Amino acid sequence: MKTNDALYPIREVSNLTGVNSITLRAWERRYGLIEPVRTEGGHRLYTLEHIEQIKAAVKLTEEGIPISQVKARLSQAVPQVKEEIHQGDYDYLSKIVDATLQFDLDSLSSELDQLFQDVSDKALFEILKNASQLLAVHSSETINTFWESQVLPRLYTRLRFSTRHVSLHASKKLWLQAEDINGSIVVLVLAAIRLADKGFYCVISPNPQKNNELLLNSIKSSHCQGLVVVDENQKLDKTHWQGWVTDHPSLEFHFFTERADSFDMGNVLQCHGYNL
């Protein structure tokens, strides 16, 4: 571990990975899956690489691999994850997060310029999504503002190029919002870019609206033909949105969430799920 690696306490790691603290401790004690850094007081701290390993372990268990066998398989899963996070041996994610936390404008600008130039769209989206989620755990408006001030102009430029081939008169327009107020505008724009590549034009709302009547008014007023919900924090209210789909059969419903293929949202003709 590098001395300047960002470190995260177990409660924040639990929020990022969906694995509760008790389970993380059990995985460490019984199976030796993750070896966190220890403070002098014995508190566990985790690096970005630990977080990616935990996510890889979760995927293996969901594929039916017993937890007792995950450590042996993890060595095969982690390189696959790293291919999405690293370009060669260069760890863009750590560099970007560290530069943001240190408010190092020159380094962050340089890292982002190189990132946008060097990596594929898939890897770019994965890195920026993870960076936004990791920075969000600090609950600092100053950090988030600094981060967004650098990444959003670059993403809006990418979005503009992605929508150049979309006919604004012929394309479907979709109202796009986060599932909850803690959603990142960065992740919303990433979702809009992915949908633009499929021929959709998104109206991005930074303020999520859960009141159905007000939401419907917004959709109609903006001449949208559907709704997109981005579930960044694994809090998708399936019951609520199933009711929305039933009540508004003429509107398409798109949603981004972890493991979207595991969500049965009913009418497949108007519901479209995407893995976040």
Rank of each mutant, 00 (worst) to 15 (best):
S140P: 07
S75D: 08
S139F: 13
V151A: 06
E83G: 11
F256A: 06
S149E: 13
E141D: 14
D261G: 08
L48C: 04
V58C: 00
D89H: 12
L101H: 04
L155W: 00
L115Q: 04
Q69T: 03
F256I: 03
E84Y: 15
L45R: 04
R73P: 00
E49C: 00
F125T: 05
L74Q: 06
S250R: 12
H138K: 13
W244D: 00
G18D: 01
V119S: 08
G18A: 01
G88M: 05
H165F: 10
P66D: 05
M265R: 10
S222D: 06
G88I: 03
I85H: 04
A196R: 00
L251Q: 14
W27C: 04
Q209S: 08
T145P: 00
S120N: 10
L215S: 05
Q270G: 13
N211F: 08
K173N: 09
Q117A: 09
V187D: 09
E111S: 14
E148A: 10
H138R: 13
Q87W: 11
K198I: 07
N211P: 06
K55S: 06
H248C: 08
I96Q: 05
G273A: 06
V203P: 00
L174G: 06
N233H: 13
L115C: 05
N4A: 10
W147L: 02
D104H: 15
E141F: 10
K82C: 01
K210C: 09
Q76W: 04
S205A: 12
V58L: 03
V70Q: 05
D113W: 00
E52I: 10
L134N: 10
T100W: 02
G42H: 01
E83A: 14
A178M: 13
A170V: 07
V13A: 01
V186Q: 09
S167M: 02
E40C: 01
E252K: 14
Q102R: 15
G18Q: 03
T142V: 15
Q53Y: 01
V203K: 11
L227R: 05
P206Y: 12
L276V: 03
H165C: 04
H272T: 04
H138N: 08
R44N: 07
R160M: 09
G64T: 02
T239V: 14
S171M: 00
E258I: 12
E179I: 04
E258G: 07
E126C: 11
V78K: 04
A136G: 07
F103I: 11
V70I: 04
